[in-house]
Computed example of a mutant assay.
Amino acid sequence: MSLVRTGINPLKEAQGLVAVAIIVVASLLLVGCQQVAVLTMNQMVTTEFQVMGTKLLMRGEINSRSLGQFEEVYAENPDIDTLVQLDVPGSIDDDVMVAFGYRLRELGLNTHLTARSEVYSGGVDLFLAGVERTMEPGATLGVHSWSDGIKDAQDYPKSAPAHQQNRLYIERMLGNDTFYWFTIYAASAENIHIMTEAEIRRYGLLTN
C-alpha cells in the first residue's frame, strides 16, 4: 500500500514541518531573550534625578526602580513642584510608569519639557500626569503602540482587557481616552511617530 497521499510529497511536507518548527522555536527564543533583557534592565538604575530648586530634572528610561528613586528624592525635597523631563526614551515597566504618573498627579506636581527635551513612549504618558503641562518650542514627543512581546496593542480588539490599564490612565489624566487610541495606531511598537504641534494641541497634551 502506498503511503503517498494524492498531490502531497512526504519529503516536502516533512521539510515544511521542520521549517515551521524552527520558526516557532526561534520566536520563543527571541521572546525569551527579550524577557531576560527586560529583567536585567529592571535590576539596573536607568533613571537619573537631579534637584534644582523646586524643579526635579529627569533623564533615562523608566523601569521598576524609578518610582522608588523618585519617592526618596521627593521625601528629602518636598518643595519640588515640577518634574522636568529631559531625555526619557520610554518605559521598561509600564505598571511602574502608570503608578509613577498617578503619584505625580496625587502630589499635584507639574511637568515641563525644555527646548531640547526628547520624550518618547512611556515618557510621554508620564508627562501627562502633570497638573500643569508645559513645553518649550523644539521639544520632541514621540508615541507608538505598546507591545506585550507577542502582539501590539493595535492587534487586540478595542474591547480587550489588555487595553484597560493604559486606556484608563490616559482617560484619568486628560479627561478622555482619545489620545490613547491615537498612540496605538500612530506607529507600531517597533517604530515611533513624532507628534506635530497640531496633534499636541488636538489631544490636549498641554495646559498652557
Rank of each mutant, 00 (worst) to 15 (best):
V25N: 04
R5P: 12
A153F: 11
E190R: 13
Q165Y: 04
Q34E: 15
T196E: 01
I194P: 00
I22M: 11
T46L: 13
E13F: 15
R65Y: 05
M41Y: 13
Y74V: 00
E171T: 08
Q15L: 15
T178C: 09
G68L: 04
E197Y: 05
D155M: 15
Y120C: 04
D125A: 15
L83Q: 02
A115G: 06
V143H: 06
S91K: 07
P161M: 01
L56G: 01
V31P: 12
L128Y: 01
G108M: 12
V25E: 09
M58Q: 06
P161T: 01
S91G: 12
S27E: 09
A186H: 04
E171D: 11
V18E: 14
R133I: 12
Y185D: 15
T140Y: 09
G53V: 03
L39W: 11
L168H: 14
N63M: 06
T134A: 01
R65W: 07
A129P: 00
D152K: 02
M41G: 11
G32M: 05
S159A: 14
K55R: 12
M97D: 14
K55N: 11
G53F: 02
G7Y: 12
V45P: 00
T40N: 14
S147N: 12
V24I: 14
S64D: 15
D79C: 08
R105T: 03
S91P: 02
E190K: 07
W181R: 04
Y156K: 08
Q34M: 15
A19Q: 08
L67C: 05
L141D: 00
G68D: 06
T111A: 06
L174H: 07
E76D: 10
L29W: 13
G149S: 07
I194E: 03
F127E: 01
Q154C: 13
D95K: 12
C33M: 13
S91Q: 08
K12I: 08
L113R: 01
Q154Y: 14
G16P: 13
E106R: 10
N42W: 12
D94W: 08
E199A: 06
G130M: 13
I80H: 02
D94V: 09
D125I: 08
V119N: 00
N166E: 13
L11D: 14
G7L: 14
L128M: 15
E76G: 00
D81E: 10
L128W: 07
V124K: 08
L30E: 15
E197H: 05
E48T: 06
S27G: 13
Q43H: 05
